[in-house]
Design a protein around this nucleic acid. Structure first.
Lengths: 166, 166
DNA sequence: TACAAAATCACCCTAAAGTATGAGCGTTGA
DNA sequence: TCAACGCTCATACTTTAGGGTGATTTTGTA
């Protein structure tokens, strides 16, 4: 069944979050030792305040840079790449069911319309559907009426824009 | 249409680089004055080396962080976002010049063809192009001939598949 | 400038498309 | 059961599309 490793998760995130800070603390301790040594060496021997200050400045500048690089979250820049894609006109065709319902076309009328869109004549459609030319004429008339078109070319154009034919 | 957005992250302008360096120089000069003042104030008066060193450490840590943040080039993570776009069939239409050349259609014939594809009758095309019906008939006959089509619906279908009309 | 291609228009004819009306037949849902 | 709908087919008619031929004008180019 479901086991929740909430504790594990939290400790690991805790370690990840504060590892840098712990490391920083350790490094700081080491630096303090180094500085104390430098202080003793330089001030007692040479009394060279400038070298001492310069060393501190240099070390802590490097430390700051290291800290910043280590701790800053990466600056994310989102790059949107537009690529031209050649789409096969008939490959991505999906019949728009809603538009089809709106038109009120029957299945047979849709068949006739689709064959019309392929450039077939009424006679060729009749042959393909095994019906008479007059039947196809009736269907095509209904198609034109339902698509509010005066010519079959217009009907095909409208149907294409509605997503009824490829 | 192909749109290519190339983001060159390395080419931060030279002006920006120079400005940062100049600012850094100015800041460094100010810091030297501040440090000299601190040296005089603290060392001469209090002989407090620890405070002096701590101040230097703090200041240069902040300086280092500031430098790092200011001067590091952004860590760029390129995120390619794919978006599904419903394309208006005519919006992304680019005329297939090669196919057009192959057909050998003249400019006027192409115009007639495109109006044909919109479902206009020859008379409507004639009105739109300010020519006679007979002229449109001549053009449409040529179109059918050159596209090897028997009907205008077939011509439109072929032209669409060739990428000549939207 | 001369020539080919394109664009324009006309006339006639046929084929196809579209309109209108009516009717028979099968399925379906109230 | 019966009205509604879809599918089928027919006839008659009008409109549009398409084919063929020929002609004139414009235009781009060798």
């Amino acid at each position: 069944m479901a086991k929740c490793f909430i504790f594990d998760d939290m400790t690991s995130t805790f370690w990840l979050k504060y590892r840098s800070i712990l490391l920083y603390g350790l490094l700081l301790a080491l630096l303090l030792f180094l500085l104390k040594w430098l202080e003793v060496r330089l001030i007692m021997v040479n009394h060279s305040f400038e070298i001492y200050a310069g060393s501190i400045a240099l070390i802590f500048t490097v430390l700051g840079i290291w800290l910043a690089v280590k701790l800053t979250s990466p600056k994310v820049r989102t790059v949107v790449i537009e690529k031209q894609v050649f789409v096969n006109p008939s490959a991505d065709f999906a019949l728009n069911e809603k538009a089809l319902q709106v038109t009120g076309l029957s299945t047979r009328e849709l068949e006739v319309l689709q064959l019309m869109a392929q450039g077939l004549s009424n006679q060729q459609i009749a042959d393909q559907l095994y019906v008479s030319l007059n039947t196809v004429k009736t269907h095509s008339s209904k198609v034109l009426e339902k698509l509010e078109a005066g010519r079959r070319t217009q009907a095909v154009d409208k149907a294409r824009k509605l997503g009824i034919v490829p």
